[in-house]
Structure formats: C-alpha cells, structure tokens
Design a binder for these strands. Structure first.
Lengths: 202, 202
DNA sequence: ATTAGGTTTAACCATATAGTTTAACCAAAC
DNA sequence: GTTTGGTTAAACTATATGGTTAAACCTAAT
C-alpha cells in the first residue's frame, strides 16, 4: 500500500506512451505494454480496466503536451519577432525530443475525428486563445497583409512537418541521422528570418 | 475469362485503397475490403494472396501518386515564381481530392521506416531530381540566401500539413467543412506570394 | 456439349488478443 | 500475527481475424 501506489500507474503510463506513440491504437498489444512496464497483464487491467481507457489517458496527455508547450511560446507577451523566434526554437526542440507525438496525434485524429472534441475540453488552454495572442502581436507589429490564421498554420506546418516526415526526408536528401539533426538545427536559426521576411512589406 | 479479368483486380485495389488509406495496415480487415469491393474474402485471396501483398500494392500506388504529381509541378522548366504558383495550386488541389494519402504514407512510414527504400525504387522519378530542378530555377532567379532544401521542405510543409491536420485545424478555428475548404482556397492564392516574399531580398 | 476460369458459399483451421479469474505471494500497517 | 492491498503466475474464455479448402455455380470460349 505504501510501496508503489501511483508509481506503478506512472510506469504503466510511460510504457503505454512509448508503445502507443509508435504503433498507434490498432498496432499496440496490451502484452507489449505490460512487458515494457515490467509487469504482467493482470496488473495492467487492474489499473486501467480496458485498452481504451489506457489509450485515452495516453492520447489526452499527448494532446496536452503539444498544446501547453505551444502556449508557453505563442502565449507570451513578447513582440512578434521574438515570439516567433522563441516559438520556433523551443517548439521544434520539444518536437525533436518527442518526435512520435505529432504523428501519433495526427493519425489517430484522422482515424477518429469525433474524438477531438472530447479531448479538447481536457486541454487547459483554448487554442483559439493562441491565435488571438498571435493576432494581437501582429497588429502591434503593423503586419496587415497576412491573415493571422495563415501565419499560425504556416509556422506550425514548418515546425511540425519536418519532424513528422523525418524518415521520408532523410531518404529523399540522403541524410544520415546526424546530418538531418544538424539540418534541423540550422533551420531553427533560419526559419524566423524566413517568416519575418514573408510577412514584412518591402 | 472475358468477363472481368483485371476489372475485378481493379475493384479490389480501389476498395483496398479506400480502407487502408483511412485505417492503416493494422486497422484494416480483409473482410471489410471484400465487402467494400462487393466480393467475398476467398476471391480477395485468390487475387492478392496475402494482406501484405495487397497492402504493398496500395502503399506503392500512394507513393507513386504523391511523387509523380509533385514531379509534374516542380519538375517543369518554368521560372521560379510560376513554378511555385503551379505547384502550390495543383498540388494542394490534388491533396484535397486525396486527403487521406499523405497521412497514410507518413504514419505507415513512421511505423516501418525500413520499408521506404524498397518503395523508392518503384517510383519513376528520383525525388532528389526534384530538388535539383528547384535549385536550378532558384539560381536562375538569383535567390541565394535560402537553401533550396529548406525551400523545398517549407513549401511541402505548407501544402501537406493543412491537409493532414484538417480535422484538428477545423476544431481549433471553429471552421465548418465548407469554411475550411474556402480557407484553403484562399491559401492557394496567398501562399505563393508569402513564399516569394520570404525568399526575395528587400 | 465440354472445358476453363472467375466466382460464391460456407465451413474450417490456427493463431492472436482483450479481458477474466483464481490462488498464491509478499511487504507494510495495524 | 493478522489484515490489507499491490503483485504475480497461469490457466482460461470469448472473439476476431488471416488464410485455406472443397464443392458447386455460372458464363463465355472452344
């Protein structure tokens, strides 16, 4: 009772994340999660009654991770240029360390689009709020020729896609693992400039 | 023997695409494909011996579709600005009509990165060639401050991500299906300008 | 009319998998 | 030392699923 009450639950959750993130709901076996957590299947069902329960916990966490991290960078009160720089740097950094999460979320959402709405309520920050923060700092910076929603999506695209498509892009450009990481590192520096250029009038 | 020799095979392949694209390998049932094709399971295995065979055919086709379509637009000899305009317009249009393909490819590749190399040989055009064509037209347009690979990835990101993340972005911005499509339509016009701005020196 | 090949039906096999159950174990709390 | 609750082991259930098989059917070509 004192031993490992919520520690085991945590262990299970970590193991479940590792497997679910890589293999998705359908590709994941409860036995594999149990093995990864170093426990047996019975205990797995003792904590999370069903596969769906466990999956929902994992999915919700992933969703929260992605959005709360985005909030930290976009939600700040910095002026636009700094905000973009921070967002791109920190967010890409976060994505690199959690490279399976965006693909996991996107593919699960495509397979079950209705599920989003439920999960959205569990996220502490409303994404629309992020857009409003971005819109305000664009107004402050006198950027008027670009729809803030477009900018939001463009920045997100250029941060997330290279992570999601990494295995593909590596092959296309003949990058080794190390070369690709260096390439991304270079991007972190150049992307803010690319974007500021794009939205600033000549 | 005359009746429907390759017509049935085609029917199966179409049905398989429909299911595989939406549900991925693990989420797909052979029975469901048979139902979708209006035939029975026995005939399915008569044409494609195994699930893996059928999947490979579908995956290879998806891969070809994505890259040959990209080739049509990026591989042209138009000057940079026109090339970008065409690419963005036509490629996004293609993606809209085949909105499950990019997500399908990305998630399957993440789950089985080794498989890419095999599939790559089946693609009629080497993707590196696309990059070279882009690099050449950038040189012609005197764009020197941007790595062609970055531009390639940025354009691809901004074309593909909004399609892959559509269910998510719809919820974030409170878009109806129709509103989202109109939003994408607007993007088609504005994206080329956004990108030309980004890479042109002030 | 016979043949051949696509097609159906339906039963069948082997295996995998989510989830359950039961008995036993063990360590800490009482 | 007894109780309690987390934990294990192992067997088990029910079901789903990929794949096979065999017999019969139907239609067009011969």
């Amino acid at each position: 009772m004192v031993n490992t009450p919520h520690c085991t639950e945590e262990k299970i959750l970590e193991a479940a994340k590792k497997i679910f993130h890589r293999k998705g709901y359908d590709g994941t076996r409860m036995q594999e999660i149990a093995d990864e957590a170093g426990i047996n299947k019975a205990l797995l069902h003792y904590y999370f009654r069903t596969k769906e329960n466990l999956f929902n916990a994992v999915f919700q966490d992933a969703f929260k991770d992605i959005f709360s991290r985005l909030f930290l960078t976009v939600g700040s009160d910095d002026p636009l240029e700094e905000k973009l720089g921070k967002m791109i740097n920190e967010y890409i950094g976060f994505l690199q360390k959690n490279s399976f999460i965006p693909g996991f979320i996107l593919s699960e959402i495509n397979q079950n689009p209705d599920k989003i709405i439920d999960v959205f309520h569990s996220v502490p920050v409303q994404p629309l709020f992020l857009y409003e923060k971005l819109r305000d700092s664009m107004r402050d910076a006198r950027i008027e020729n670009v729809d803030p929603r477009d900018l939001f999506i463009n920045v997100l695209s250029m941060c997330i896609f290279p992570v999601v498509a990494k295995p593909l892009l590596k092959v296309i450009f003949n990058f080794s693992e190390k070369e690709y990481d260096e390439f991304i590192e270079k991007r972190k520096k150049e992307l803010p400039e690319f974007i500021m250029n794009a939205i600033t009038k000549k």
